[in-house]
Computed example of a mutant assay.
Amino acid sequence: MKKFTLCVISILAIYMGLAGGQSRKPGLTLVERTQHLTDMYRNKAVLRFNSNKFKDYVKGTPRNYSMIVMFTALAPQRQCLICRHASDEYQIVSNSFKQTQGSSKKLYFAMVDFDEGSDVFQMMRLNTAPVFMHFPPKGKPQRADTMDISRVGVSAEEIAKWIVDRTDVQIHVMRPPNYLGTVAAIVLFGLVAGFLYLRRNNLDFLYNKSMWGMTAVFFCLTMISGQMWNHIRGPPFLHQGQNGQIAYIHGSSQGQFVVETYIIMVLNAAVVIGIILLTEAAKGKKDSKQTKIMAVTGLILVSVFFSLLLSIFRMKTQGYPYRLLFD
């Protein structure tokens, strides 16, 4: 009876083991994983992953390809100011890679949105967005596999440079043509030409020195504030840190934010106004009281706002030893 009972228990254990093995979902093989990615990559340059796809194609093994993943939060209610801009730049990089490399099986681009894979954020211990991470073919991501966007920004050129450092895959960034600047220039030229035509009998204002002087000063302030750099690099408007704090000044001398250029322009304008007041006071064409007011006001403007400019320069250039009024 004991032998019979043991035989029955053994048969049941074997049956339950087989049943359990049949219910366990086997993982994807390397060939299946690569083929699925290639098929998806034909339709989209950036693959959108939820938690299941992330585990299958990014964390799953074996892998013989690198995966660049952008963790983001694009939903309007998340109020991620930089996420949309970062997503556009990331799309430019992935499209450039797809156009130059074709359906390469060495590198893939993916995106995980917080609302589609919040458990992935918990798995990767992420509490901010956007984050760019490189997942190598073998091993776990190292510290350098996370892009330091607080230092270099999120421009397509910087993303491509970081990818080259991590994967040795060269990506020539090809931005789509932007005809907005050309159209704006044509419209502006047309308005100026039409205005001159209407005022063709009275063009004395063209000899107004004050108007040309203000135009030249505004042009100089625009150029030295970094507007041309913004036009070329396309930096974000500002940056939201990991703890939710907002950074208006870039922490490196190699980058800047759009709002930073406006701040620099205002500070430089205040210094220019101060110098103009000091110059007018030095001419002595006003009475003594007005001259003193202009001189004191100009001195305060130059001292305070130039000190602020120097302080920002010290913040962006580590090791710069000089300051005026502020640290």
Rank of each mutant, 00 (worst) to 15 (best):
Gln254Val: 10
Leu180Arg: 12
Thr261Tyr: 03
Ile232Ser: 04
Gly244Ile: 00
Val187Thr: 03
Gln256His: 07
Gly181Asn: 06
Arg200His: 01
Pro236Lys: 00
Tyr197Ala: 01
Ala185Val: 05
Met228Gly: 04
Val183Arg: 03
Gly251Phe: 02
Thr215Arg: 02
Gly181Phe: 08
Gly213Met: 10
Thr215Val: 15
Phe195Thr: 14
Ala247Lys: 13
Gln245Glu: 13
Val258Ala: 05
Leu198Arg: 13
Gly255Ile: 00
Thr215Tyr: 14
Ala193Lys: 07
Phe219Met: 10
Gln242Trp: 10
Glu260Asn: 02
Leu238Val: 11
Asn243Arg: 07
Phe219Cys: 12
Ser210Asn: 13
Leu196Val: 11
Leu196Phe: 11
Asn201Pro: 06
Gly194His: 06
Tyr179Asn: 06
Val192Ala: 09
Val192Ser: 12
Gln254Trp: 07
Tyr197Phe: 11
Pro236Leu: 09
Val217Trp: 06
Met211Tyr: 10
Asn201Ser: 15
Met211Cys: 09
Tyr197Lys: 02
Trp229Leu: 05
Ile232Met: 12
Gly244Asp: 02
Leu203Tyr: 05
Gly234Pro: 01
Leu180Gly: 06
Gly226Gln: 03
Gly255Met: 04
Phe219Ile: 14
Val187Gly: 00
Met223Leu: 12
Leu191Gln: 13
Asn178Val: 06
Arg199Thr: 12
Phe257Ile: 01
Gly181Thr: 09
Gly181Ala: 10
Ala184Phe: 06
Lys209Leu: 06
Ile249Tyr: 03
Phe237Asn: 00
Gly244Lys: 03
Ile232Gly: 07
His231Lys: 12
His231Tyr: 13
Gly251Tyr: 01
Val192His: 09
Phe218Met: 14
Gln240Arg: 15
Ile186Asn: 03
Val183Met: 12
His239Gly: 05
Ser210Pro: 05
Thr215Lys: 08
Ile249Ser: 00
Asn202Ala: 11
Ser253Ala: 15
Leu221Met: 05
Thr261Lys: 04
